[in-house]
Nucleic acid binder design. Sequence first.
DNA 1: CTCGATTAAATCGTATGCGATCTATATAGC
DNA 2: GCTATATAGATCGCATACGATTTAATCGAG
Lengths: 156, 156
Amino acid sequence: MTPRNEKTTPNRGLGDFLCFAVYSANLAFGRAYKPILDQVGLTYPQYITIVALWEEDSQTVGGLGEKLFLESNTLTPLLKKLEAMGYVRRARAAADERQVVVSLTETGRRLREKISTTNLVKASGLNPEEFRRMRKGIATLRDNLIKAGAESAGEP
Amino acid sequence: MTPRNEKTTPNRGLGDFLCFAVYSANLAFGRAYKPILDQVGLTYPQYITIVALWEEDSQTVGGLGEKLFLESNTLTPLLKKLEAMGYVRRARAAADERQVVVSLTETGRRLREKISTTNLVKASGLNPEEFRRMRKGIATLRDNLIKAGAESAGEP
DNA sequence: CTCGATTAAATCGTATGCGATCTATATAGC
DNA sequence: GCTATATAGATCGCATACGATTTAATCGAG
């Protein structure tokens, strides 16, 4: 019934999967950052959250989630840990008591000078131009995936 | 003491971080795969593990871990779930009882025909040539990060 | 003004990652 | 052949992700 069957499902290995390249590169980044972040007691996702707050302080949990592509179920526990460490404050918004505004403490702001990632940029092995192209390409890929998901979910 | 202080820590936002592009793209891939994998009851890491077994069946836990960049502490529970679902078998190697060999069941092999990722390739928005370049670029980036980590850890 | 619908966080359960440790097996020296 | 060491998985605890639900506050139609 199915002669020449092998051709229907070509023998693609892990190395042929773009998703695996991204998956494994993400693990590698987390491991590369670890020795640096250990010095200030941050995990990798906590660090990314701090970076978002350096860029714009005093954001709501929802606003932070939009930028980080995370929901409150992930962010709330993470932010509580950052608060317990003294890097951020969490306060209900006066205008809308449903919202929680997250702000950096002075200690949180000072982390910026304590965390140097220049070694990591070197470790990437990319020159500034390659670095920029790669970053843009991956961000576009991400946005394409999100857009396609939104379209197939809701109305096209 | 530190005049012109702003220049020492330039205002880089999330969008300037290659690591964040990779981090968020990885989340996006997991979400894009979800509706497809839900049909066969697999999670995204479980799927990647199955792909590794399609490429080469009957691997030890350690061998699988090398290809997936994962340790036994992550793989063992995942493989037990795949075994409970009937997609793989786990058996101690006769030659060396310390090793556990993981093999696909017939059901596990048949998943290959049931999971179609052509829609996802389209969703990436990349033509075959761009797709290939992106995949290679990210894999190289990953390998550079791993190499740099190994060098700074052990002897240079 | 009031009640149903909506929205923002938080909570809960499950599944990864991963450091640290444990157990069982295999190997090396003597 | 016996013991010390090394190796392969497994176990445990903690920190994300995330679907589903809950709680509390706001909004809106009447």
